[in-house]
């Protein structure tokens, strides 16, 4: 039994190491409810998505998040991030963890964003630790660059690239970190509505398409809906906003892996 388990895990690890090395670090229940269309979002979770979005952080803020897919045990993801205004921009630091006792990925990430007129630029640098029971651990550096530009008061364009330099994971196997480019357009047809359309291309996968919407009626609750193609997935979510607390929940559904849940909370510290 134990031998079988080890074999199974070893096989799983071969797949992980041979195909795609890293899981998605997209975090934030707000982005998640919007089909992960995050290129134009600017909030405390931008550290793990488009770093340029950090420029939208106004107060010092701490955020925690947890994501799980019940049909895929061992695939839980969690993250903590903190941001504050510093060096004429926004500085942010966070930790991310994926996996269980057998296999895990841990990321330490530092990000900075600066706004220049109508455009914001951001960068984040990560140190990724892969660890698998019996196979040891591996440390790889990664970098993400992003930008968000305001074309008109009601239209934004955002894009970011993950690991543009394709850092090497394993020289023996010629493995490199996945390179991914995401670009999207955000439209605000009315004060209460945000629509985002986005494409995401990972060199190892087919192009993914996303469209999402956020509805912010007066009051404290926000509602979100998103859908994604390749692979197809539906998502929806609700958010709560108060001056001292932000709570978000996202539910997604795909015929491949069933439902997924994502919860995040953030505590802003009002600056004087």
């Amino acid at each position: 039994m134990t031998a079988q388990l080890i074999c199974a895990v070893a096989l799983l690890l071969c797949v992980f190491f041979a195909e795609a090395q890293s899981v998605s670090t997209l975090m934030g229940a707000r982005a998640h409810a919007m089909a992960s269309a995050s290129s134009c979002l600017d909030d405390e979770w931008s550290l793990f998505n488009n770093p340029a979005g950090l420029s939208g952080v106004t107060d010092a803020i701490v955020a925690v998040g947890y994501a799980m897919t019940p049909l895929l045990p061992g695939s839980d993801r969690m993250a903590v991030a903190g941001s504050l205004r510093a060096f004429k921009g926004v500085l942010s630091a966070g930790i991310f963890r994926f996996g269980d006792a057998f296999y895990s990925e841990q990321i330490m990430r530092l990000g900075y964003a600066h706004k220049l007129g109508l455009a914001a630029l951001g960068i984040s640098a990560s140190l990724i630790q892969y660890s698998a029971t019996g196979f040891g651990t591996l440390w790889v550096p990664g970098v993400t660059l992003g930008g968000i530009a305001e074309l008109t008061p009601w239209m934004k364009i955002g894009a970011y690239v993950v690991n543009p330099t394709q850092p090497v994971v394993s020289r023996d196997h010629g493995e490199r970190l996945p390179t991914q480019l995401t670009a999207g357009i955000g439209v605000t047809p009315g004060e209460q509505v945000l629509i985002i359309a986005e494409v995401e291309k990972d060199l190892d996968y087919d192009t993914s398409w996303k469209i999402a919407m956020e509805y912010r009626p007066l009051g404290r609750f926000h509602f979100r809906l998103g859908c994604r193609l390749v692979p197809e997935r539906f998502s929806a979510g609700v958010g709560f906003r108060s001056p001292r607390l932000r709570l978000d929940y996202a539910l997604d559904y795909s015929a491949f892996i069933g439902t997924g849940h994502h919860v995040t909370a953030a505590y802003p510290f009002a600056t004087k």
Partner: peptide, 10 residues
Amino acid sequence: LSSLTPQLEV
């Protein structure tokens, strides 16, 4: 069915 703005129905 929702009319989110006068222009947008969802």
